[in-house]
């Protein structure tokens, strides 16, 4: 156990590919949103990718392949390597409540290589949002050929709202995630180098 890295290389590789993919998908998605906004606001042009609707769609439908293939690779690795079972489980309501209250009182210690219950919950939630954003995206892309999937979301128009809110949830996760990295900067280098586990705590 003492030689095990905090983040195995497949986790680091898929993490950074995913970061690039998410950045492209969200910023190009905002460009597409602006062509026919669902709500009474636009995203500022500087925050969009693609320059115009055709460019934003070109980015969105190109990078979706990277994002989905990368996500499948990660999920496959996570299940087969027991990364999910070892690092993101077990998870209980009482543990989440305990860690959440500790965190709000700023009394939750961070141990490198160990996820607390709130982190575990947020990772499961963002994984679920990832599945939702891909499925609702497929429903928007192919509402006729994947008619059953589109119906599951209540049709094309409602699937657009689902896609938007799934994006919003993922964006909120990213804000939280980056805030935590700023609060505990020592978590950043292990995601690049792999880091070394603190065995004294194990």
């Amino acid at each position: 156990m003492s030689t095990r890295r905090i983040h195995a290389w497949p986790v680091r590789l898929t993490h950074w590919l995913n970061a690039f993919g998410m950045f492209c998908m969200i910023s190009s998605g905002w460009g597409i949103y602006n062509a026919s906004p669902l709500f009474a606001f636009h995203f500022p042009t500087w925050s969009t990718l693609g320059g115009w609707l055709g460019g934003s769609i070109a980015w969105h439908l190109a990078v979706m392949w990277l994002l989905v293939i990368n996500a499948l690779a990660y999920l496959l690795y996570g299940a087969l390597s027991r990364h999910f079972a070892r690092d993101l489980l077990p998870l209980s309501v009482s543990a989440v409540r305990r860690d959440l209250f500790a965190a709000l009182r700023l009394k939750l210690q961070h141990r490198l290589g160990h996820y607390n219950a709130v982190q575990r919950l947020s990772y499961w939630l963002v994984l679920a949002l990832g599945v939702l954003v891909v499925l609702s995206g497929l429903a928007i892309w192919k509402p006729v050929q994947l008619h059953g999937l589109a119906s599951l979301f209540g049709g094309f128009d409602i699937a657009r709202y689902v896609h938007f809110f799934a994006m919003a949830g993922i964006a909120a996760f990213i804000v939280l995630h980056l805030t935590l990295v700023l609060l505990v900067p020592s978590t950043l280098p292990p995601m690049i180098t792999g880091g070394r586990r603190e065995t004294s705590h194990e």
């Binding site: 950045f23 492209c24 190009s28 990718l49 320059g51 055709g54 460019g55």
Partner: peptide, 14 residues
């Protein structure tokens, strides 16, 4: 060129 300039804006930024 319209597509190109639009795309390269994003490309340069990123």
């Amino acid at each position: 060129l319209l597509l190109r300039s639009g795309l390269s804006l994003g490309a340069l930024a990123m």
